[in-house]
Amino acid sequence: MERTIELTVNGTDHQVTVEPRTLLIHALRDEMGYTGPNVGCESSVCGACTVHVDGEAVKACTELAVRAEGSEVTTIEALGDEDDMHPLQESFQEEHGLQCGYCTPGMVMTAAVFLEEEPDPDRAEIREALEGNLCRCTGYQNIVNAVESAAAEMAGAVEPATDGGTAVEEGGD
């Protein structure tokens, strides 16, 4: 039943043996040690498991690992590290956009691709964009503030994304 698949996570090639039923989130967490994305609900609602698959925000609890074969997966671990955080990570800290932090990796990953697509969103658009990520601690307001201020920060940044690549994908672990 088990099969071996190859995929790239945060720039590193991985070969991992999974059952067809193994969910991507469990392959990432249990088989490959990427414990940044979390499991919160299993019903595709909470979004704590959000990662990027080939540059798109995806709920890793609603994807089979075997179907991610050949994909490039990016988790929160690659977005920035403690000494060199992504503008979103910085703004989440500055704006107090997190409390317990469990939903945060998914929230930030959703926001990251959203800001690539919509660099200058208004507050209502930010709220719509984060519909698939539940937070029980913050009441969302400081999260919206954080995304808003990261957008401003990123718009003012000197490094534009080149050749369609993104800052997000250039991380590595």
């Binding site: 595709s44 979004g47 959000t50 798109e56 925000a57 995806v58 709920k59 609603t62 994807e63 959703t110 691709v113 959203f114 964009a129 519909e131 698939g132 990520n133």
Partner: peptide
């Protein structure tokens, strides 16, 4: 439909 992540897949 759903949310951003759902719409992506």
């Amino acid at each position: 439909v759903g949310d951003r992540q759902v719409r992506n897949r």
